[in-house]
Computed example of a mutant assay.
Amino acid sequence: MEIVAWVLIVLAVLAVLLAIWRLLTLRSRGSTILLRTLPASGVHGWRHGMIRYNGDDLEYFKLRSISPMADQVFTRQRLEFHEPRKMTPEEEGFMSEGLAIATLCDGGSHYELALDQHGLMALTAWIESAPHARQERIDHHRLRSRITRGQSGK
Protein backbone atom coordinates (compact mmCIF):
# COMPACT_ATOMS: atom_id res chain seq x y z
CA MET A 1 0.00 0.00 0.00
CA GLU A 2 2.86 2.35 0.82
CA ILE A 3 4.49 1.71 -2.58
CA VAL A 4 1.27 2.59 -4.39
CA ALA A 5 1.09 5.90 -2.50
CA TRP A 6 4.68 6.76 -3.46
CA VAL A 7 4.06 5.88 -7.09
CA LEU A 8 0.98 8.13 -7.14
CA ILE A 9 2.92 10.99 -5.53
CA VAL A 10 5.74 10.65 -8.08
CA LEU A 11 3.25 10.60 -10.97
CA ALA A 12 1.49 13.69 -9.61
CA VAL A 13 4.78 15.57 -9.25
CA LEU A 14 5.80 14.59 -12.80
CA ALA A 15 2.46 15.79 -14.18
CA VAL A 16 2.79 19.14 -12.39
CA LEU A 17 6.38 19.60 -13.60
CA LEU A 18 5.37 18.72 -17.16
CA ALA A 19 2.49 21.21 -17.02
CA ILE A 20 4.77 23.97 -15.70
CA TRP A 21 7.41 23.22 -18.34
CA ARG A 22 4.81 23.30 -21.12
CA LEU A 23 3.27 26.55 -19.89
CA LEU A 24 6.60 28.33 -19.58
CA THR A 25 8.01 27.18 -22.93
CA LEU A 26 4.86 27.90 -24.91
CA ARG A 27 4.11 31.25 -23.36
CA SER A 28 7.49 32.60 -24.43
CA ARG A 29 7.32 31.27 -28.01
CA GLY A 30 3.69 31.10 -29.08
CA SER A 31 0.62 33.12 -29.98
CA THR A 32 -2.67 32.69 -28.15
CA ILE A 33 -5.60 31.46 -30.25
CA LEU A 34 -8.90 29.63 -30.08
CA LEU A 35 -9.37 26.67 -32.41
CA ARG A 36 -12.27 24.43 -33.34
CA THR A 37 -12.85 21.67 -35.83
CA LEU A 38 -15.59 22.14 -38.40
CA PRO A 39 -18.41 21.35 -38.81
CA ALA A 40 -19.48 22.90 -35.54
CA SER A 41 -22.71 24.57 -34.58
CA GLY A 42 -23.18 27.67 -32.47
CA VAL A 43 -20.35 28.34 -30.07
CA HIS A 44 -19.47 24.71 -29.37
CA GLY A 45 -16.06 23.22 -29.92
CA TRP A 46 -13.77 26.20 -29.28
CA ARG A 47 -10.52 25.25 -27.49
CA HIS A 48 -8.00 27.69 -26.06
CA GLY A 49 -4.38 27.15 -26.95
CA MET A 50 -1.18 28.43 -28.46
CA ILE A 51 0.27 28.18 -31.95
CA ARG A 52 3.92 28.10 -32.79
CA TYR A 53 5.56 28.30 -36.21
CA ASN A 54 8.19 25.60 -36.64
CA GLY A 55 9.64 25.75 -40.15
CA ASP A 56 6.93 24.49 -42.51
CA ASP A 57 4.72 23.33 -39.65
CA LEU A 58 2.18 25.20 -37.56
CA GLU A 59 1.94 23.52 -34.17
CA TYR A 60 -1.12 23.88 -31.97
CA PHE A 61 -0.89 23.21 -28.25
CA LYS A 62 -4.10 22.89 -26.23
CA LEU A 63 -4.20 24.93 -23.06
CA ARG A 64 -5.44 22.02 -20.97
CA SER A 65 -2.89 19.45 -22.03
CA ILE A 66 0.39 18.39 -20.48
CA SER A 67 1.76 16.53 -23.48
CA PRO A 68 5.23 17.74 -24.52
CA MET A 69 4.23 17.27 -28.17
CA ALA A 70 1.93 19.47 -30.25
CA ASP A 71 -1.72 18.44 -30.12
CA GLN A 72 -2.26 19.33 -33.78
CA VAL A 73 0.29 19.95 -36.55
CA PHE A 74 -0.59 21.73 -39.78
CA THR A 75 1.77 21.53 -42.77
CA ARG A 76 2.08 24.78 -44.68
CA GLN A 77 2.11 23.13 -48.13
CA ARG A 78 -1.35 21.59 -47.55
CA LEU A 79 -3.06 24.56 -45.89
CA GLU A 80 -5.68 26.66 -47.61
CA PHE A 81 -6.57 29.97 -46.02
CA HIS A 82 -10.03 31.51 -46.34
CA GLU A 83 -11.05 35.08 -45.67
CA PRO A 84 -11.59 35.92 -42.01
CA ARG A 85 -15.07 36.59 -40.72
CA LYS A 86 -16.45 38.66 -37.88
CA MET A 87 -17.50 37.06 -34.63
CA THR A 88 -21.15 36.25 -34.13
CA PRO A 89 -22.95 37.89 -31.18
CA GLU A 90 -22.81 34.56 -29.31
CA GLU A 91 -19.05 34.31 -29.85
CA GLU A 92 -18.54 37.89 -28.66
CA GLY A 93 -19.92 36.75 -25.30
CA PHE A 94 -16.86 34.64 -24.47
CA MET A 95 -14.11 35.82 -26.84
CA SER A 96 -11.92 38.87 -26.46
CA GLU A 97 -12.82 41.98 -28.39
CA GLY A 98 -11.08 42.47 -31.74
CA LEU A 99 -10.57 38.85 -32.69
CA ALA A 100 -11.03 37.69 -36.26
CA ILE A 101 -12.01 34.15 -37.19
CA ALA A 102 -10.17 32.54 -40.08
CA THR A 103 -10.92 29.19 -41.70
CA LEU A 104 -8.09 26.82 -42.54
CA CYS A 105 -8.41 23.69 -44.63
CA ASP A 106 -5.78 20.99 -44.15
CA GLY A 107 -6.47 18.29 -46.68
CA GLY A 108 -10.05 17.21 -46.00
CA SER A 109 -10.25 18.72 -42.50
CA HIS A 110 -11.56 22.22 -41.83
CA TYR A 111 -10.75 24.37 -38.81
CA GLU A 112 -11.59 27.81 -37.50
CA LEU A 113 -9.02 29.90 -35.67
CA ALA A 114 -9.84 32.99 -33.64
CA LEU A 115 -6.87 35.31 -33.29
CA ASP A 116 -6.06 39.00 -33.02
CA GLN A 117 -5.13 41.18 -36.00
CA HIS A 118 -1.36 40.77 -35.48
CA GLY A 119 -1.70 37.00 -35.26
CA LEU A 120 -3.93 36.96 -38.34
CA MET A 121 -1.39 39.01 -40.30
CA ALA A 122 1.45 36.69 -39.21
CA LEU A 123 -0.55 33.58 -40.13
CA THR A 124 -1.48 35.00 -43.53
CA ALA A 125 2.11 35.98 -44.29
CA TRP A 126 3.42 32.58 -43.17
CA ILE A 127 0.97 30.68 -45.39
CA GLU A 128 1.44 32.94 -48.42
CA SER A 129 5.23 32.79 -48.22
CA ALA A 130 5.25 29.02 -48.69
CA PRO A 131 7.08 27.86 -51.79
CA HIS A 132 4.92 26.27 -54.44
CA ALA A 133 4.31 22.56 -53.86
CA ARG A 134 5.87 21.67 -57.22
CA GLN A 135 9.06 23.60 -56.54
CA GLU A 136 11.94 21.17 -56.26
CA ARG A 137 15.25 21.70 -54.56
CA ILE A 138 18.21 21.14 -56.83
CA ASP A 139 20.34 18.18 -55.80
CA HIS A 140 23.76 19.38 -56.95
CA HIS A 141 25.45 15.99 -56.44
CA ARG A 142 22.89 14.21 -58.60
CA LEU A 143 23.05 16.94 -61.23
CA ARG A 144 26.87 16.74 -61.34
CA SER A 145 26.76 12.95 -61.76
CA ARG A 146 24.29 13.28 -64.64
CA ILE A 147 26.44 15.89 -66.36
CA THR A 148 29.67 13.96 -66.00
CA ARG A 149 28.15 10.57 -66.87
CA GLY A 150 30.05 8.92 -69.65
CA GLN A 151 33.09 11.18 -69.25
CA SER A 152 35.88 8.95 -68.06
CA GLY A 153 39.27 10.48 -67.56
CA LYS A 154 39.40 12.84 -70.55
Rank of each mutant, 00 (worst) to 15 (best):
T124Y: 03
E2F: 04
G55S: 08
S145C: 07
V13W: 05
G93D: 11
T32Y: 13
M95Q: 09
R22T: 06
S152A: 13
R29L: 08
L58M: 14
R36K: 14
A114D: 06
R52K: 13
A102V: 15
L24E: 09
W6P: 00
T88S: 15
W126E: 04
Q117K: 06
R144C: 07
V7S: 07
Y53W: 11
S129G: 15
A40F: 13
E90W: 13
A122Y: 00
T148M: 13
G42Y: 15
T103L: 05
T103F: 02
G30M: 05
R142M: 07
G49M: 02
K86M: 11
G49C: 06
M69Q: 06
R36P: 01
L8V: 10
V43L: 03
A19W: 11
V13L: 15
I101K: 03
V4Y: 06
P131M: 02
V73D: 03
T103C: 08
H82Q: 09
G45L: 09
E90V: 00
P39M: 09
F61M: 01
R85E: 08
D57A: 11
H48Q: 12
P89N: 13
V7R: 07
T75M: 06
A19T: 09
A19V: 08
Q151K: 14
L63C: 02
T32M: 07
A15P: 00
D106I: 00
S28D: 07
L24P: 00
D139F: 00
W6V: 07
T75H: 14
T37W: 13
T75V: 04
L58T: 03
G150Y: 02
L63W: 07
H48N: 05
A40Q: 15
L104Y: 06
V4M: 08
F61R: 01
H118K: 10
M121Y: 00
R47E: 15
E128R: 11
R142G: 14
H132K: 13
A15I: 08
D56F: 01
T103M: 12
P68W: 10
V4C: 08
G42E: 13
L26P: 00
S65N: 10
W21D: 04
T103Q: 13
L113S: 03
L8K: 05
L17V: 14
R142F: 01
H48G: 11
N54D: 15
I147Y: 02
L123K: 03
T75F: 05
A122N: 10
L14T: 04
G107K: 06
F61C: 01
L11R: 02
R64I: 09
R149G: 07
Q72M: 12
I66Q: 03
I127R: 01
P131V: 03
L115G: 05
S65I: 05
A70Y: 08
N54Y: 11
M1V: 04
T124A: 10
S41A: 12
A100S: 14
H140L: 12
A40L: 14
Q77M: 04
I33L: 15
G42Q: 12
R47C: 11
G107T: 08
L18K: 05
W21L: 04
R146D: 05
S65Q: 04
E83L: 12
T37K: 15
L8Y: 01
R64T: 09
G107V: 02
S152W: 14
I138E: 07
L18R: 08
I20G: 03
I147D: 01
L58R: 04
L113A: 03
L17R: 02
R64V: 05
